[in-house]
C-alpha cells in the first residue's frame, strides 16, 4: 500500500528511483539510450529528452507535468534510436502506465519489437490538466507552479492560487486504473521499476453516463460548442502514439474525402473519424487533449471508445502484446442488436 504523502515527496521519491534505475541500465549497457522527461522552460511543462550518457541521468525529471506520451518517439523511431551501423538500438523508456500500455499495444500491432525496449516503469499519480488551470487563472501570467501537500500552488505577479490536484488532474487520469505499466511476463527483460500485473480491469464508466443520457440535439450542440475553437492544427493527431499512418485520412487527396476547412461539419467529421480509428487502440494517455493549443478536451470521446470496446469486446488496450486488437479481429457471436430486423 502506498503511504499517503504529499505530491512533491512522492514525485521526488519516484524521481530518484528512476534516476538510479536509469543510471544502472546505462552503466551495465543494458540499454543504449533512454528517453525520458526533463524540466521545461515554462511552468507546468516538461520536455522529452534522449540521453545516452550516465552523467546526463540527473537531467531526467518526474513530476505531474510529464504528459507527453513517449511511445510517440518510437513509431517511427527518431534518428537517435537508430545506429547507422548497429541498426536499432535498445531503448529505455521512462514509462508511466499509459506509455507502457502504448508500447505494448504498438507491439500487438507489430509496430515495435518489445525485445528492443526496456520499460522503466513508474507508478504515475496523474498529470495536471494544464489548460484547465490556465483558463481558470485567466488573463494573468503564471510564473511558478509548485506542489504543497495534495494541492497545486500557482503563483504569479500579485496572485497565488491553490488547486486541489484530485480535481485539476487530466480527466482521463481521474479514471485511470492502470497507473504503472502492465507486466508482460513473456518478456522478463522488459521491465525495471514499478510494473504491475493486471487481471481484468473493472470500470463502470460513470463519468460519461451523464453525457450519454442527453438527447441527440443536446449532444450535437455540446459537441459543436466544444469543437468550435478547433483550428485543425492536428496537434492531437501528432501527439497520439497510435496515430502513425504515413498518410492520414484527412490528408488523402486522391480522392479528397473530407473538407479541410474549419467549418463546423468538417471539424466534426475529422474528430469523428479520428475517434473511429482510435477504437480499441486508445491507451487513455490524454495527450491529445493536453497538447491542444486551444484547450479542447477530447477525453470524453476517448472514454466512450473505451466503454464501447470494453462492453462489446471485453478488451482493454495495451495489456497484452499477443491479443489481437478488437478491430482486426472478430467473433461469430459478436452482438448485432443494432442490425435492422424484420418486426
Amino acid at each position: 500500500m502506498v503511504m499517503i504523502v504529499g505530491l512533491e515527496e512522492e514525485n521526488k521519491e519516484i524521481e530518484s528511483n528512476m534516476r538510479e534505475l536509469a543510471r544502472g541500465l546505462l552503466k551495465e549497457k543494458k540499454v543504449d539510450v533512454i528517453i525520458g522527461y526533463k524540466k521545461g522552460t515554462l511552468p507546468m511543462m516538461s520536455q522529452p529528452i534522449i540521453i545516452d550518457k550516465e552523467e546526463d541521468v540527473d537531467k531526467l525529471l518526474w513530476n505531474n507535468t510529464c504528459y507527453v506520451n513517449l511511445a510517440k518517439y518510437l513509431v517511427p523511431r527518431v534518428a537517435k534510436f537508430v545506429d547507422p551501423e548497429k541498426g536499432n538500438l535498445k531503448v529505455g523508456v521512462v514509462a508511466k502506465g499509459c506509455v507502457g500500455r502504448a508500447l505494448i499495444h504498438l507491439a500487438s500491432e507489430n509496430r515495435i519489437n518489445l525485445d528492443e525496449i526496456t520499460i522503466i516503469g513508474i507508478p504515475c499519480n496523474g498529470v495536471i490538466n494544464r489548460q484547465r488551470i490556465e483558463m481558470e487563472i485567466g488573463e494573468k501570467e503564471i510564473l511558478e507552479v509548485t506542489a504543497s501537500g495534495n494541492n497545486i500552488v500557482v503563483k504569479g505577479k500579485n496572485f497565488e492560487k491553490e488547486f486541489p490536484f484530485d480535481e485539476y488532474m487530466n480527466e482521463l487520469c481521474k479514471q485511470c486504473k492502470i497507473r504503472s505499466p502492465p507486466l508482460v511476463s513473456k518478456f522478463p527483460d522488459l521491465h525495471v521499476g514499478a510494473c504491475e500485473e493486471y487481471a481484468s480491469i473493472v470500470d463502470e464508466f460513470d463519468d460519461i453516463a451523464e453525457f450519454e443520457a442527453k438527447s441527440p440535439e443536446e449532444k450535437w450542440a455540446y459537441i459543436q460548442d466544444a469543437l468550435s475553437v478547433c483550428t485543425r492544427c492536428y496537434a492531437c493527431r501528432e501527439a497520439c502514439p497510435m496515430c502513425y499512418c504515413n498518410l492520414c485520412f484527412v490528408d488523402q487527396n486522391k480522392p479528397i474525402w473530407f473538407g479541410k476547412t474549419t467549418d463546423m461539419p468538417d471539424i466534426i467529421v475529422y474528430h469523428l473519424i479520428r475517434a473511429m480509428h482510435m477504437a480499441g487502440r486508445c491507451v487513455a494517455c490524454g495527450a491529445c487533449s493536453l497538447v491542444c493549443p486551444m484547450g479542447i478536451d477530447l477525453n470524453f470521446i476517448n472514454r466512450k471508445l473505451e466503454k464501447i470496446v470494453k462492453q462489446r469486446f471485453d478488451f482493454t488496450s495495451g495489456l497484452d502484446p499477443d491479443t489481437l486488437p478488437p478491430m482486426t479481429d472478430f467473433k461469430m457471436e459478436d452482438a448485432e442488436e443494432f442490425m435492422l430486423e424484420e418486426d
Binding site: 520536455q47 522529452p48 529528452i49 534522449i50 507527453v68 510517440k72 518517439y73 527518431v78 534518428a79 537517435k80 483550428t231 492544427c233 492536428y234 496537434a235 493527431r237 501528432e238 501527439a239 473538407g259 479541410k260 476547412t261 497538447v291 493549443p293
Partner: peptide
C-alpha cells in the same frame, strides 16, 4: 527537430505565418 512531434501549433498561432492552401469547394 528531435523532440518536435510535428504538430503545427507554432505556425497556426503565429501572427506572421502566411502560408495557405487553395481548394475548391
Amino acid at each position: 527537430a528531435e523532440s518536435c512531434i510535428g504538430c503545427s501549433s507554432c505556425t497556426f498561432l503565429c501572427p506572421t505565418c502566411t502560408c495557405f492552401d487553395v481548394i475548391d469547394e
